[in-house]
Design a protein around this nucleic acid. Structure first.
Lengths: 138, 138
DNA sequence: ATTACTGCAAAGCATTTGCAGACTG
DNA sequence: CAGTCTGCAAATGCTTTGCAGTAAT
């Protein structure tokens, strides 16, 4: 496990399992599930239990250091460092790879749910398709 | 349970549990979870087991009669009759009511995931906010 | 020294699966 | 009657919770 580089979240006690989880998230190229994090830690010396990882992730989300989401109907939750930016994801229907979208298609959308008086606070967009590697018609 | 009005899906054997599920979905004002359907059937004479409901829903989805989705990170799947129209949902953060959106904010969006070569096939949009009844600032 | 954290085991919840008897076409 | 469904039970996969020993400040 490489050294910790992130600024440690304020008011959070520094422990080995937490450092491991944060480190894995730092080196992740895409959002990870709890299980992903679990297996990436296992490779190294220390063993951190899945339940502990869930507790740590919950804490980090609470502290605003980590963001939790889900994509593709009903799958596992995925986690990533909070970069404080509006983000959406594209999911490959073939390999399930998750690609971050840098442009938000909703930017200019003025929410108006017409006659039902819905007060929109936020939105979530997911795109489905083929990633570069899986595309049968590139 | 009221009488069945829907056209019965082709190639599907007519049984009481299936008729019950279809009928419940017909009279539903919003998408329902398997459990919702379960409890709405229970009120009546026949008891249909949850596992059976899941199997029936799976079959109906396969036959294209029913659409399955999920909203609000990580909840139960919800099901509704397939009206063959592009649809999105707004979810009340307070009471979790689900409101169907009649306008798609992505209509005019030209997908371009820039340099990552993602081939977009479809999308899913969810809006979060307060429904008419729960809005603290109407 | 106190209080919070973690290993570990076991529970919880939505969903799936296995099987034998029941029902449909 | 043959093959498909369904009641029922038990398993599954992700996630949460309880508890007692361990570690952090």
């Amino acid at each position: 496990m490489k050294e910790i580089q992130t600024v440690w979240p304020v008011g959070v006690k520094k422990t080995k399992p937490r450092a491991c989880v944060l480190s894995v998230l730092e080196h992740a190229e895409s959002p990870l599930s709890a299980m992903d994090i679990y297996s990436r830690i296992e490779k190294d010396t220390s063993t951190v239990w899945l339940s502990t990882i869930y507790r740590i992730l919950e804490l980090f989300v609470e502290k605003g250091v980590v963001v939790k989401t889900t994509v593709m109907n009903n799958e596992m939750a995925i986690y990533e460092l909070n970069h404080y930016q509006h983000k959406h994801y594209a999911v490959c229907v073939s390999c399930r790879k998750i690609v971050a979208m840098n442009n938000c298609p909703m930017e200019k959308f003025v929410p108006k749910l017409a006659d039902n008086g819905f007060h929109v606070l936020g939105h979530k967009v997911e795109m489905y398709g083929y990633c570069k590697e899986c595309d049968p018609n590139p």
